[in-house]
């Protein structure tokens, strides 16, 4: 079992004819993802490695039955691409693109809330159900099918967590990169609900970072509603205030959004927090041991 995507998921790529779109469509297909086509306005009728290219998402859905998309279009057009996917009834939308203006996301978020679609990202690596379906840019080979759900605001740090959990003999159910922007389509809480309800997920790892209050909100949710073991790590304990640490959303502003506040909230909710980024796998093992 898994959340959001599985071996039956049919995936298209918006921006398939661009360099990144073509490259990662190939990567997902090689991993075993059921890629069924792509969309680039004005290039309908062409093909990429034999996959049909359509002018619109609506047409792609009609012709292929796609229910998921990964978006690689440039940042100025990403809001449009997401809204087009929502309009076409795509269930799972992963927006990989970095650099989307935040006010675009205020508008997109409202549309997502009013729809049946789930948006992952933007500015994220995507999501993967190991051995079944990879939608995004993560290196597939580090993942192992298993029972840990991993979610994170950071890309490469997720790879690190996946690597560590695989190394201690724990595979993953579904791993989701939420994205590093101030407003993203899916929150930790949204995924806690899905992981909690998923029979294939037995433990949950959340990786947060400085900026905003998403981790504090998630901690409060876990205390009330999550019965499965949870471990966490927060990046940015040494980050100076007022500086954007690479991610648009990773900033301590007005003294708020520090790692210390987040760790405190997580620990108060009974979550096992890894002190060091090298300790994520071990923290998860401790959470599981404590639980049983």
């Amino acid at each position: 079992m898994s959340i959001l995507i599985n071996k039956d998921t049919k995936v298209i790529c918006q921006g398939i004819t661009g360099g990144a779109g073509t490259f990662h469509t190939r990567g997902c297909r090689d991993y075993g993802t059921n890629m069924v086509g792509g969309v680039t306005p004005g290039k309908g009728g062409q093909d990429v490695d034999g996959l049909p290219v359509f002018d619109t998402v609506e047409e792609a859905v009609d012709q292929t039955g796609a229910d998921a998309t990964m978006i690689f279009v440039p940042a100025p057009f990403t809001a449009d691409a997401i809204l087009e996917a929502v309009d076409a009834g795509i269930k799972t939308i992963a927006a990989i693109t970095e650099g989307v203006p935040v006010l675009d996301m205020v508008r997109v978020y409202e549309a997502i809330q009013a729809s049946d679609s789930t948006l992952i990202g933007p500015n994220c690596p995507g999501l993967i159900t190991p051995g079944e379906c990879k939608i995004g840019i993560m290196p597939g080979y580090i993942h192992t099918p298993g029972t840990v759900g991993i979610m994170s605001r950071s890309g490469t740090l997720t790879y690190e967590a996946v690597w560590q959990t695989s190394n201690v003999g724990l595979g993953q159910s579904t791993c989701v990169g939420l994205g590093g922007d101030p407003i993203v389509g899916t929150s930790f809480i949204d995924l806690f609900k899905l992981y909690e309800a998923d029979d294939g997920t037995e433990a949950i790892m959340m990786i947060g970072e400085i900026g905003g209050t998403a981790e504090e909100e998630a901690a409060a949710f876990v205390a009330e509603h999550v019965t499965k073991p949870v471990a966490a790590f927060i990046a940015g304990r040494t980050a100076p205030p007022g500086k954007r640490m690479g991610h648009a959303g990773a900033i301590i502003s007005g003294g708020k959004g520090t790692a210390a506040e987040k760790v405190k909230a997580l620990e108060a909710a009974g979550i096992e927090v890894a002190e060091s980024p090298a300790d994520m796998g071990a923290a998860l093992q401790r959470a599981i041991a404590k639980h049983s």
Partner: peptide, 23 residues
């Protein structure tokens, strides 16, 4: 490579008694 891993690398340097010169 990657913002989260870069922040974590700073953090782990500090945990081992060092001081990062940059992000």
């Amino acid at each position: 490579n990657g913002a989260g891993l870069a922040m974590s690398t700073m953090d782990i340097i500090k945990l081992h008694g060092g001081e990062p010169a940059n992000f």
